[in-house]
Design a protein around this nucleic acid. Structure first.
Ligand SMILES: [Mn+2]
Ligand SMILES: [Mn+2]
Ligand SMILES: [Zn+2]
Ligand SMILES: [Zn+2]
Lengths: 148, 148
DNA sequence: CAGCTTATTGCAAAAAGTCGCAATATCAGC
DNA sequence: GCTGATATTGCGACTTTTTGCAATAAGCTG
């Protein structure tokens, strides 16, 4: 359930990154928050563990953690992105462009697409805690007068 | 090929928004740029048409245009989002989390997913110029030493 | 088309995010 | 366990994006 399960040290090194205190603390913070951690949440948790870590370092650490695949970044429509430990989410999100509502959907809805994309393009879709946009049921019906 | 085809006046009013000069000019700018218009591009084009329009107004106009469905917003991994006229893109994008490469894929790959999601959740997926993340072919093979 | 209501704008200030650089810490090699 | 090469950090300056508010303009009513 936590990143302790994965060998994040090896993963970072394999990708050519060094294992540093700030990176570990940022990873701990994302882990401690348990899903949808906004930058402000992460900054607060990091600050509790080590108040000397700079804002810019947190941003850079998150970039690295996302790049090596330990952390997943999502844009849920609210200003700012949110972060989660990779592999822990068992769902994806649908975000309504009109009202901003966020729905959760079953993880396996994406599996077909993932297979299809891998076959056609050789691209390995990151199918962990995806975000897709569109119109929720309410907002669809709220818009009958015109049809575009 | 341009937004002239759609009745953007009605669309805005239907959604309860007023039709204003800044909004029209921002829409024109997105249209003029033809795909992947960054904020800087839009600002430049808007400034040419009317130098008195404020930066903040451009951001707010884009939010509205996205919300009513006239414009599509994408995060291609580079800093900052890009904008396009809705309905004009005939492709989606795959963005590699590791190297940042951006691939284009056939529009219809998503159709199955769109139908599936609509059936299961009543959600109307915005299947116009989507962005999905993952690992490109090169970056997959570049990472054999460890397996998570 | 003049008057009225209220959404929208421009401005200024704040907040969020990015970047270059000198100082520091990681870690491979001995 | 040291040493050296170099990736990473903290800091400050900068850029980008967001926000509150008073002035303005859209569009409904008659
Ligand atoms: Mn979630
Ligand atoms: Mn495109
Ligand atoms: Zn909605
Ligand atoms: Zn790649």
């Amino acid at each position: 359930m936590t990143h302790e399960n994965t060998d994040y040290v090896d993963i970072l090194r394999t990708h050519g990154y060094r294992v540093t205190m700030p990176r570990m603390i940022v990873l701990d913070a994302v882990c401690a928050h348990e899903g949808h951690a906004a930058i402000a949440d992460i900054q607060r948790l990091v600050y509790d563990m080590d108040p000397t870590i700079d804002r810019s370092t947190i941003y850079r650490a998150l970039d690295v953690l996302v790049e090596v695949g330990l952390v997943v970044e999502s844009d849920l429509g609210h200003p700012g992105k949110v972060y989660s430990i990779a592999g822990e989410a068992n769902h994806h999100h649908l975000v309504c462009l009109q009202c901003g509502k966020v729905l959760s959907i079953r993880r396996d809805v994406i599996m077909g697409l993932k297979a299809q994309i891998h076959e056609a393009y050789g691209f390995d879709l990151q199918a962990d805690h995806l975000t897709l946009n569109g119109l929720c049921r309410d907002c669809q019906s709220k818009k009958p007068p015109h049809s575009l």
